[in-house]
Every structure is written in structure tokens, then in C-alpha cells.
Amino acid sequence: MYTPEQQTIQVNGIQLSLHITGPECGPPVWLLHGFPECWHSWREQIPALVAAGYRVFAPQMRGYGRSSAPAGIADYDLLTLCADIQAGMDFFGHRQVSMVGHDWGAVVAWHLALLEPARVAALVTMSVPFAGRARRPVIEIMRELNADRFNYILYFQEPGVAEKELDADVERTLRLFMQDQDVFLQKKPATAKLFDDVVQPAALPHWCSQQDLQIYLQTFAEGFRGPLNWYRNFERNWQRTEFLAGRKVLQPTLFLIGDRDPVGVFEAHTLKRMPEVVPRLESHVLADCGHWIQVEQAQQVNTLLLDFLMRTPS
């Protein structure tokens, strides 16, 4: 048995906290979490990967928990987030890795595959698909389509607005994110707040114990400013990734999404186009599953993940 060991390293101008475990000689697997999550979101995958002989690296992404949370919005653009992980791979001397990402971590993983075609040997992404660089910033399209109705990404754009709501009661915020995924699909005025008229459930979901919740609470003890800044770089991300336009993800790739994941509604067109830019794609839709796929359907995710990694060794 291996217990994850927390380690903080200096990379890319920040302190990056990681939880590392597994045999030192095992093939390295990086697990990149999304929003609003933390390294502990992979608690069901880490033991399974270690038991299969992998060396696991689960960072607390920039802006989260013990990792640095710079003040500037531009400090959270996509290429900077990728550079954190690239520098982490350099630090540990990784020449080939398997890269796994969920939600925003999937966005970083997709782009790491483009940036590191030799070093990222196998790619696993969950919940957020990829269809290449858009012809214009996605945030412009969102503003056009949602001029008179609420959109959570647009709500996150103005610094301080979403923080005021989410930071007011961090535990309530986390409980609502965990259990009411339909909040992202609600039809309400553009002036509304994220959790208007949303009632907090009495109990935690079956996949999150009180002990698990405490780790999430520790992660967001300083609030949501850093994580929200990831959302404030859509235009900057588009501008800085011009050199990636037209590139395909050529690595063997596994994509997983839940049949009840709101992202499946938002990204329906991207899902259809994904095979065009990911030619070696294997895709699965998990039944009775929402957005928090790796804990909601942990056993099925682990089976698919391990089977894929063992067929595509790094």
C-alpha cells in the first residue's frame, strides 16, 4: 500500500503542490483536476492506478489549495497553466507520461497533448471535449447567445462578483456544486446569481463523505478568486494559442462523459466534431452519471481507464 505524499515544488514562478504515490519505477500518470475540485477528486483512481503499478502525480492546480494563487487574471491563461505541468514533468525528469484530466483539467490535458506530442504518450479526458481552436473567442459567442439570459461563465467574468456569492458560505457553495448540476442549465435572467432559488440538499451525495468534504473546504479556505480567474482568460487563451490552429491530437485518446453531464448539452456540437481532430479517439458515455464522473461512477471509470492505459503503455 502507498499513501499519497504531499510535496511542494518551485516551477514556472509558483509553488505547485502535488500528491505523489506509487512505485518509484512505475510509469508516470498525471491527474489534473477541474473546478471546483482538488487533487482529492481522484481519490478513487489513485489506489487503482497504484495497484496496477503506476506512479501517480496529482497536482493541486494553480490557484487551488496549497499551490500559489497569483493576483493577476492573466496569470491563469491556458498556456501558463500548461507550463506549470510541463515544468513539473521537467522537475521529475519525465520523458513520457500518461495525462489524465477532468473538466478544466481536461482542457489543460488536451493542450498538453498538442504542446508535448512526444512526451504525452497517452491521453485521457473526462467531461470536456475538444474540437480544435475556435475561429473566434468562445466568450464572444457566449455573449451573443446569452444577451438576455443567465450564463454561468459570463457570470464568472467580472472580478469580485461571483466571488462575493461563492465565498460568502464556502461549504454551502461546495454542497450545491456537488449536488445540483442542473443549476448550470437553469433558465433565468442575465442579472441573476448562480444559486438564486437553489435549495441546499440536506445530505451530501453518496460519493462524498464528511471527511472528503473537509479536504475540499481546506482547498477553498481562501476563497474562489484563483479558480474563477481560469474562466476570465477565454479571449487571451484564443489569442495565445493561434500557433496551435489546425493541429490534431494524434495520441491514443480515451474520452469519458456522463449521460447527465450538463457539459454534454453545452458542447453537443464539439462532441460531434471531436473525431475530426482526434483521429485515435475511443469514447464512452457513462449511464446514470453527472459531471463528477470519476467519483460518481468510480468503478466504471477505473475499469475503462486501466484497460486503456494498459493497451497504450507510456
Rank of each mutant, 00 (worst) to 15 (best):
H102D: 10
H102S: 15
H102A: 15
H102K: 13
W104K: 12
W104S: 08
G105A: 07
G105N: 03
A106M: 07
A106H: 06
V107T: 08
V107W: 07
H111Y: 14
A113E: 07
A113L: 03
L114S: 08
L114R: 07
L114N: 10
E116G: 04
E116I: 05
P117R: 04
P117A: 04
P117Q: 06
P117K: 04
P117F: 11
R119E: 01
V120W: 01
A122Y: 04
A122R: 09
A122S: 13
L123S: 01
L123Y: 01
V124E: 10
M126Q: 15
S127A: 15
S127E: 10
F130D: 01
F130Y: 13
A131R: 00
A131T: 02
G132L: 07
G132V: 01
R133C: 00
R133M: 03
R135L: 13
R136E: 14
R136C: 07
P137M: 05
P137L: 09
V138W: 14
V138C: 13
V138F: 07
I139R: 08
E140Q: 12
E140C: 11
I141T: 13
I141N: 11
M142P: 00
L145Y: 06
L145T: 08
N146M: 00
F150E: 00
F150D: 02
F150T: 03
Y152V: 02
Y152E: 04
Y155L: 05
F156K: 10
F156N: 09
Q157F: 03
Q157K: 09
Q157V: 00
E158P: 01
G160L: 02
G160R: 08
V161D: 06
E163W: 10
K164S: 06
K164G: 07
L166N: 08
D167G: 13
A168M: 13
D169W: 12
V170W: 08
V170H: 05
E171A: 06
R172Y: 15
L174T: 04
L174H: 08
R175C: 14
R175M: 13
F177N: 09
Q179S: 05
Q179K: 12
Q181S: 12
Q181A: 12
V183F: 07
K187L: 14
K188I: 00
P189A: 00
A190V: 06
A190E: 03
A190I: 06
